[in-house]
């Protein structure tokens, strides 16, 4: 079930080079290949806690704020989870955003606590 299949070809064709993504809360970095979404790249961290939900812009669990850099919207984002006002401030869903430049991202969705605590929380990091 490779999530890469969810990126429309016409969209992925527009991005030209890999981009580096830095996660603000954990300091982790990863690379998104050309056309990959923030979430597809994040999955390559290969750890638990990655906020993977519907991967189709509907459920909102992978909500992020792009603090620095620019992303391309690759599909519809549910207004139930990202308001127009939030979107204007750089909030989006990681499954719907493909970085166009190096970016810094804050994870703010429903699974955020588990995502962050595994790395910087008080408890031991789960394998």
């Amino acid at each position: 079930m490779s999530p890469s299949a969810h990126v429309p070809r016409s969209m992925s064709a527009r991005t030209v080079s890999p981009c580096s993504v830095t996660l603000r809360q954990t300091g982790e970095t990863y690379v998104c290949a050309a056309g990959e979404t923030l979430l597809q790249g994040m999955l390559k961290l290969g750890r638990r806690g990655i906020p993977v939900g519907c991967v189709n812009g509907g459920c909102g669990v992978c909500k992020v704020k792009v603090m620095r850099g620019r992303c391309l919207k690759v599909g519809a984002v549910s207004r139930q989870h990202v308001t127009a006002e939030e979107e204007a401030r750089g909030v989006t869903l990681a499954c719907r955003a493909a970085p166009q430049t190096d970016v810094e991202v804050e994870v703010i969705g429903k699974m955020q606590r588990g995502f962050v605590n595994l790395i910087v929380g008080s408890g031991p990091a789960a394998g």
Binding site: M1, H6, G53, C54, V55, N56, G57, G58, A76, S78
Partner: peptide, 28 residues
């Protein structure tokens, strides 16, 4: 290329055999 949430398995509840997956808007 449908996003599968839970691969084929069985529920204890109802005894049903199941796959969970998402439609293109994220409805399960």
């Amino acid at each position: 290329r449908v996003k599968i949430d839970v691969a084929p398995t069985r529920h204890g509840i109802t005894r049903g055999e199941t796959i969970y997956f998402f439609d293109p808007s994220g409805n399960r």
